[in-house]
Amino acid sequence: MNRPPRKRLIQALLFVVLLVAIALIVWQALRPDGLGDAIASGNGRMEATEIDIATKLSGRVAEILVDEGDFVAPGQLLARMDTRTLDAQLRQAQAELQRMRNALQTAHAQVAQNESTKAAAEAVVHQRQAELTAARKRYERSSTLAQRNAISRQQLDDDRATMQSGEAALAASRAQVSAAEAASVAARSQVVEAQSAIDAAEASVAKVQADLDDSQLRADRLARVQYRVAEPGEVLAAGGNVLNLIDLTDVYMTFFLPTSQAGRVALGNDVRLVLDAAPEYVIPARVSFVANTAQFTPKTVETASEREKLMFRIRARIDPQLLKEHLEQVKTGLPGMAYLKLDPQAEWPDALQVNVSS
Rank of each mutant, 00 (worst) to 15 (best):
A203G: 08
S204A: 14
A206E: 11
A206P: 03
A206D: 15
A206R: 15
K207L: 15
V208G: 04
V208I: 06
V208W: 00
Q209G: 13
A210W: 08
A210P: 03
A210Y: 11
A210S: 13
D211K: 04
D211M: 06
L212Y: 12
D214R: 12
D214Q: 15
D214Y: 10
S215N: 10
Q216D: 07
Q216K: 12
R218W: 08
A219V: 08
R221D: 02
L222Q: 10
L222T: 11
A223F: 00
Y227D: 15
R228W: 07
A230N: 09
A230W: 01
G233Q: 07
G233P: 08
V235G: 08
L236M: 14
L236R: 08
A237C: 11
A238Y: 09
G239E: 00
G240D: 05
G240Q: 04
N241F: 07
N241L: 05
N241H: 10
V242E: 01
V242R: 02
L243W: 09
L243P: 01
L243K: 13
L243T: 03
N244P: 04
N244F: 01
N244G: 08
L245P: 04
I246W: 08
D250P: 03
V251S: 04
V251E: 00
F255N: 03
F256I: 02
L257V: 11
P258H: 14
T259N: 12
T259Y: 06
S260T: 15
S260N: 12
Q261L: 07
A262Y: 01
G263C: 09
V265E: 03
V265L: 02
V265A: 03
A266K: 13
A266E: 10
G268Q: 02
N269H: 08
N269K: 05
N269S: 14
D270F: 12
V271K: 01
V271T: 14
R272I: 02
A278K: 13
A278H: 11
A278F: 09
P279I: 00
Y281N: 12
I283D: 06
I283E: 03
P284Q: 05
P284E: 06
R286C: 07
R286D: 05
S288T: 14
V290E: 00
N292G: 12
T293C: 03
A294P: 01
A294R: 02
A294G: 12
T297C: 09
T297Y: 10
P298M: 05
V301E: 04
E306R: 11
E306I: 06
E306L: 10
R307E: 08
R307D: 05
E308N: 09
L310G: 02
M311S: 05
F312Y: 14
A316C: 05
I318H: 01
Q321F: 14
